[in-house]
Amino acid sequence: MNIIPTEIPDVLLIEPRVFGDERGFFYESYNERVLLEKAEITQHFVQDNHSLSAKNVLRGLHYQIKQPQGKLVRVVVGEVFDVAVDLRVSSKYFGQWVGYRLSAQNKQQLWIPPGFAHGFLVLSEYAEFLYKTTDYYAPEHERTIFWDDPDLAIAWPLEAKPIVSAKDQVGKQLKDAEVFV
């Protein structure tokens, strides 16, 4: 695995080593020992999630204020624009975001540590999105920041008006949101 720091060094882009030939391909998508040695990811994963979304669906920006989740995310069908926003007041990157195109084709993953909001926009006709989390889903602690918060100014690669859930339409702006110390 190749570990690439992003503009926010705690968020890591992970490129697996892919072995392919005319029959198809093989790659190791998760190896706890390698992630510990190469990326110093010490968190233990407790839950795997799998979602399917249509083109222009935008999910997020989600986080849990208690039981914060670290996430190791990847796409197995299609392509998304994946975003992480630093919500740690103590971080010099507070309020900054990084975004990457993750796809079944590039097989890249993104490590998003606890203390970040997360969201993604589906760019292909549909996408299947997988992610491992370091804590369990706790809906009572889930919070949402508006995907289009002008203070964040996320450069979503929109081709049309995004499809957003009712829950995501009633989020908050970062300046009004609960954040991490």
Results as ranks from 00 to 15, higher is better:
Pro16Ser: 11
Ile3His: 14
Lys161Phe: 05
Glu178Thr: 13
Trp147His: 03
Gln47Ile: 01
Val57His: 10
Tyr100Thr: 10
Glu178Gln: 15
His44Phe: 13
Asp176Ser: 04
Ile112Glu: 04
Gln108Phe: 06
Gln109Thr: 11
Thr134Glu: 00
Glu142Ile: 07
Lys66Pro: 13
Lys38Cys: 15
Ala127Pro: 06
Glu40Trp: 15
Glu140Arg: 11
Leu130Tyr: 13
Ala54Lys: 07
Gly99Tyr: 07
Ala117Trp: 06
Val98Glu: 03
Leu110Met: 15
Ala153Lys: 09
Asp151Trp: 07
Ser90Val: 09
Pro162Leu: 06
Thr6Pro: 09
Asn31Asp: 14
Leu158Tyr: 10
Thr42Tyr: 14
Leu121Val: 07
Met1Ala: 11
Ile154Thr: 10
Gly119Tyr: 05
Pro114Val: 08
Pro16Trp: 02
Ser90His: 03
Leu52Gln: 14
Val73Ala: 07
Val80Trp: 06
Tyr27Arg: 08
Gly119Glu: 04
Val179Pro: 11
Tyr100Phe: 15
Ser103Trp: 08
His118Ser: 11
Ser165His: 09
Ser103Val: 09
Asp86Thr: 12
Leu130Gln: 13
Phe116Gln: 02
Arg17Ala: 14
Val170Asp: 12
Arg88Pro: 02
Trp156Arg: 06
Lys132Leu: 03
Glu32Ile: 10
Ala160Cys: 11
Phe146Gln: 02
Glu159Ala: 12
Tyr93Arg: 10
Pro113His: 03
Ala104Thr: 00
Tyr27Val: 09
Tyr131Ser: 04
Ala104Tyr: 00
Tyr137Ile: 01
Phe26Cys: 09
Lys107Met: 01
Arg74Gly: 12
Lys161Gln: 06
Asp149Gln: 14
Asp86Ser: 14
Lys71Val: 01
Gln96Leu: 06
Leu52Thr: 15
Ala84Arg: 00
Thr42Leu: 10
Asp48Ser: 15
Val57Thr: 13
Asp176Ile: 02
Leu35Trp: 14
Gln173Asn: 05
Gln105Thr: 15
Glu140Tyr: 11
Arg33His: 15
Gln64Gly: 00
Leu121Ser: 05
Tyr131Trp: 04
Leu52Ala: 13
Leu58Glu: 04
Glu178His: 14
Ala155Phe: 03
Tyr126Gly: 01
Ile41Leu: 03
Gly70Lys: 06
Met1His: 12
Gly70Asn: 12
Tyr93Lys: 06
Thr133Ser: 09
His44Ile: 13
Gln105Asn: 15
Gly20Thr: 09
Ile8Ser: 07
Val77Tyr: 04
Met1Cys: 08
Tyr30Glu: 02
Leu36Ser: 09
Arg17Thr: 15
Gly24Val: 01
Gln105Pro: 12
Tyr131Pro: 01
His50Gly: 10
Asp149Lys: 10
Arg17Cys: 11
Ser90Leu: 00
Leu61Pro: 05
Tyr93Thr: 13
Lys172Asn: 11
Asp151Phe: 04
Asn31Gln: 14
Gly95Cys: 07
Ile112Ala: 08
Phe146Asn: 01
Ser91Gln: 00
Val46His: 12
Asp168Phe: 04
Leu102Gln: 10
Pro114Asn: 12
Pro150Asp: 02
Leu52Arg: 13
Leu35Arg: 11
Ala155Met: 00
Lys175Gly: 10
Gln47Asn: 09
Glu128Arg: 12
Ala166Ile: 05
Pro162Glu: 03
Leu58Pro: 00
Gln105Leu: 14
Gly171Thr: 00
